[in-house]
Amino acid sequence: MAERADDRLVRLLGIVAYLDGAGPVGVDELARQFRVTAERIRQDIDALWVSGTPGYMPDDLIDFDAYSLEEGVVSLTQSRGLTRPLRLGTREAVALVAALRAMHTTPAVQADAERAAVVASALDKLTAATGEAANAVDVRLGGQGDARVLGTLTQAVSAGRRVRLRYVDAADVTSERDVDPVRLVTQDDATYLVGWCYRAEGRRTFRVDRVLDATLTPDPVRAHDLDGDVDIFAQVAADAGQSARVAVLRLASAARWVAEEVPVESVTDLPDGSFEVRLRVTNPAWLRRLLLTNAPDVLAVGPPDVAADVAGAARDALAAYADVPGLG
């Protein structure tokens, strides 16, 4: 895939400034520092080698020690004035500082004083380096959540201890479960616990505001073969089972996030700006909730029995309002 010109430029400038400060560095180490492959680094060196000041005679060019490079070590011998790291652009400073501020306010960070202190010091240093511009964006994450439950879960994740949860699921059914916690994910205004559930014998995701009670057990977590860095919405559907029918939703552009956050099988953009997603109905209660919640942006639902299910649920609710004096 072609890399954007501005992304590569920032790395090319960055490599020279880094080498100027750090001295000779192995190709692999340089690749790790800039989070790219060693092959990319070698292409970057080749590009830098032929760049310089107008005239472009040998003495005008950025230069490396060719002998070291054969040995896999990048040694800068001429930097052509690119010795200092480039400052952050406004957009970059904003994205960085707003993300850190948002993180600082998450309940999962606030629940642990040591954690909050590290986030605060990173934020202070970057705010000092970026200045006023970074105020343009103000993000708050997290919302409600029982501080006591969150405190227990945070402690369980960092200590690697099993927890016992009393949990109410999307279908409004309450259960008790022993869970080996893996990760706390804050997404928009909700926090989720990802872990290994002994009752389900598999990976499960729990909304923290649906955890009615959490107790730390003395048992250490066991090793489970699971990826903690999950997409919450993908997980919700994957958790519910395998054999599932396909539903097709046509959504207004405002509901674009559904295509991004729900595990859809395909997304088709339509000429009028709306789009169609196909997804597996692993959990009918979950889909009904998704549709009720987002109905104003849902333009069509298929197959007909899925549409009838959610429309029926909505009509029941509207009828119930009609029956309450003063509300109908």
């Binding site: 999962a108 893996v182 990760r183 804050t186 996030w257």
Partner: peptide, 8 residues
């Protein structure tokens, strides 16, 4: 053990 995410 933490992951923050925000809607687009």
């Amino acid at each position: 053990g933490l992951t923050p995410r925000l809607r687009a």
